[in-house]
Deep mutational scan, measured.
Amino acid sequence: KRPMNAFIVWSRDQRRKMALENPRMRNSEISKQLGYQWKMLTEAEKWPFFQEAQKLQAMHREKYPNYK
């Protein structure tokens, strides 16, 4: 399994919040909304999620050194 990228790190919590706030919203619509919201974030707002993704990638490399 691949390490999470910055968008996935960010969207994990956002998806839960959105699903709780909009229980009738379909998963496909939630995904569209999340994509739009991510695009609207500034680079500074995205930065912590890129840092977290880099940490996860480093841990993944250490744990699975022969992963493609």
Rank of each mutant, 00 (worst) to 15 (best):
I8T: 12
L41H: 03
V9W: 07
W10K: 04
E45A: 02
M25A: 08
M25G: 01
K1H: 13
W10R: 02
V9I: 15
P23G: 07
N66E: 15
A19F: 06
N5C: 06
M25W: 09
L34D: 05
N5S: 14
Y64D: 15
Q33V: 12
L20I: 14
N27K: 07
N5V: 03
A19Y: 06
R2G: 12
A19V: 06
P65R: 08
N27A: 13
T42F: 01
K55I: 07
M18K: 03
Q51V: 12
Q14Y: 04
K55Y: 08
A44F: 03
K55T: 12
N66G: 12
P3N: 14
V9L: 15
R24V: 07
K17E: 03
W38V: 03
R26T: 15
K46E: 02
S11Q: 10
T42P: 11
Y67L: 12
V9S: 04
Y36W: 03
E62W: 06
Y36N: 10
T42M: 05
R15V: 02
R2L: 11
K1S: 07
R26P: 14
R61W: 07
E62P: 10
A19I: 11
L41P: 01
R15L: 04
A19T: 11
E52V: 06
F49M: 00
P3D: 15
L34F: 07
E29N: 04
N22I: 03
W10M: 04
R2Y: 08
E21M: 07
E21T: 04
A19W: 00
W38S: 03
M4G: 10
A53D: 02
E21A: 09
K46Q: 06
Q54D: 11
Q37P: 01
Y64W: 06
R2M: 09
K63R: 11
R61N: 07
K39H: 05
Q14T: 04
G35H: 13
W47R: 15
N5M: 02
A19L: 14
L56W: 05
M4I: 12
L56N: 00
K55C: 11
A19P: 03
R2K: 12
K55N: 12
S28F: 05
K17L: 05
E29V: 02
A6V: 03
P3I: 09
Q33G: 06
I8D: 15
K63L: 12
P48G: 05
R15S: 07
L41E: 04
A19M: 11
Q37F: 11
E52F: 06
P65G: 13
K17F: 00
L20H: 07
R61S: 12
Y64F: 11
P23V: 05
E45D: 10
I30D: 01
P65M: 14
S11A: 11
K32M: 02
P48N: 06
R26V: 03
L41Q: 03
E29G: 01
K63I: 12
Y36I: 07
A19N: 09
K46D: 00
N22L: 03
A19Q: 13
K46P: 04
Q57V: 03
G35P: 04
L56C: 06
N22R: 02
P23M: 03
Q54G: 06
Q54C: 09
Q54V: 10
L56Y: 14
V9G: 06
Y64I: 14
P3Q: 10
K46N: 01
Q33K: 13
E62T: 02
G35C: 14
P65K: 11
G35V: 12
E62H: 03
Q37R: 10
K32T: 05
G35Q: 14
K17C: 07
Q57D: 15
I8P: 02
W38G: 00
Q57R: 09
N22Y: 09
S11D: 06
E29T: 00
G35T: 11
T42L: 03
Y64E: 15
I8K: 11
T42H: 03
N66Q: 13
R24P: 09
P23F: 05
Q14M: 15
A53G: 07
S31F: 13
Q51F: 05
K63M: 12
S31R: 06
N66T: 06
R26E: 13
P48T: 00
A44L: 11
W10V: 02
Y64R: 12
P48V: 02
Q33C: 01
M25C: 03
G35K: 10
W47K: 14
E21Y: 07
M25P: 01
F50H: 15
A44D: 10
L56E: 09
F49R: 04
Q51H: 06
D13R: 00
R2H: 11
K1R: 05
L20M: 11
I8W: 10
K17Y: 03
L41F: 00
K17D: 03
W10T: 09
L56T: 05
L41V: 00
W10L: 00
Y64K: 11
N27D: 14
N66I: 11
K32L: 04
P3F: 00
M4W: 05
R15T: 05
D13M: 08
I8V: 12
F7Y: 10
F49A: 02
Q33A: 11
V9T: 01
K55M: 10
K46H: 01
R26S: 15
Q37Y: 05
K32V: 07
D13V: 10
A19G: 03
L20K: 12
F50Y: 15
R26D: 09
L56P: 07
S31Q: 12
P3G: 09
Q14C: 12
R61P: 13
E45S: 01
I8R: 03
W10C: 01
A44V: 06
N27W: 08
K46Y: 09
E45P: 00
G35F: 09
Q51G: 04
I30P: 00
P3K: 07
Q57C: 10
Q37K: 12
F50D: 11
R61A: 11
M4D: 13
K55Q: 07
Q57M: 06
A19K: 14
K1T: 10
S28C: 00
A53E: 06
M59H: 13
P23L: 03
Q33R: 09
Q14K: 07
E52L: 04
K55G: 07
L34Y: 03
W10A: 04
K46G: 06
W38I: 01
H60S: 13
F49Y: 15
S28W: 07
N22M: 10
S31L: 14
A58Q: 07
K63A: 12
A44N: 08
R15A: 05
D13N: 14
N27L: 08
Q51T: 04
W47F: 12
